[in-house]
Design a protein around this nucleic acid. Structure first.
Lengths: 117, 117
DNA sequence: GGCTAATGATACGGGTCCGTAACGATCGGA
DNA sequence: TCCGATCGTTACGGACCCGTATCATTAGCC
């Protein structure tokens, strides 16, 4: 069941949600950080720095730094992989799950309002 | 006609579009910059620094700096208001209009794919 | 043990952005 | 003309992020 949405609706939705995020005083995440956060919470674990770098098409330091920031915000954590101690596994947190859930509700609600255009 | 979308669909859509933006090597815009850009292109002119600051709930320097960056990227321009030379009018550009249009298409297409979940 | 390969983190110089405060330019009315 | 109000911008010290190159640690294999 495809999701029917017109370009004008899409833009209104995109704008309104971003306005909400800014006004709610949420952390001003960049597109990269948002992509990382949602990938960790939507895709099946395990998530590694290298894997994320490949998925986003960016270098590893970009991921490391984004994880620093997102970790500082409490949205996710890192843990050594005990099977292969070279790896670091990125894990979800309660605060991160709440933030993602809040975003989902925000988009859903704004989508309802953005109808008919 | 409201836009029916489930939270899980909303999140998949949000993630996929952000992934596309990152992978396409677009400028890594923050939520604030995106909100400003779309406001200028969706709302009726004229747009001023003060007006944008009020709409976003941020201070004026935040808008000035965002306009510096977005202007450097060619996504919009500033012009003195000749009626009241204290004011600066933010104007759209061809490159900006194209970028916004591309975003609209991106969201629309990904929405189609994000259906059924 | 010694080698290579792979992982994630760090160093570096440079750019951007933050919030607060101050600034110059401009308007409008006394 | 002068003076307060308003506009957008800039200064400041500090924090974050960039891309490239390099690093220490670990794994796996001989």
């Amino acid at each position: 069941m495809p999701l029917e949405i017109k370009p004008s609706q899409a833009l209104r939705l995109w704008r309104q949600v971003h306005l909400d995020l800014v006004r709610d005083g949420q952390a001003d995440l960049s597109a990269r950080q948002t992509a990382i956060l949602l990938t960790v919470y939507l895709e099946l674990p395990p998530h590694t720095v290298r894997g994320l770098a490949q998925q986003l098409g960016v270098t590893k330091p970009v991921i490391t730094r984004a994880l620093d920031t997102l970790g500082k915000l409490g949205l996710l954590t890192r843990k050594r992989d005990e099977q292969d101690r070279r790896n670091v596994v990125i894990q979800r947190t309660v605060a991160g799950a709440l933030a993602v859930e809040r975003l989902a509700d925000l988009v859903t609600e704004r989508a309802r309002e953005a109808g008919g255009g």
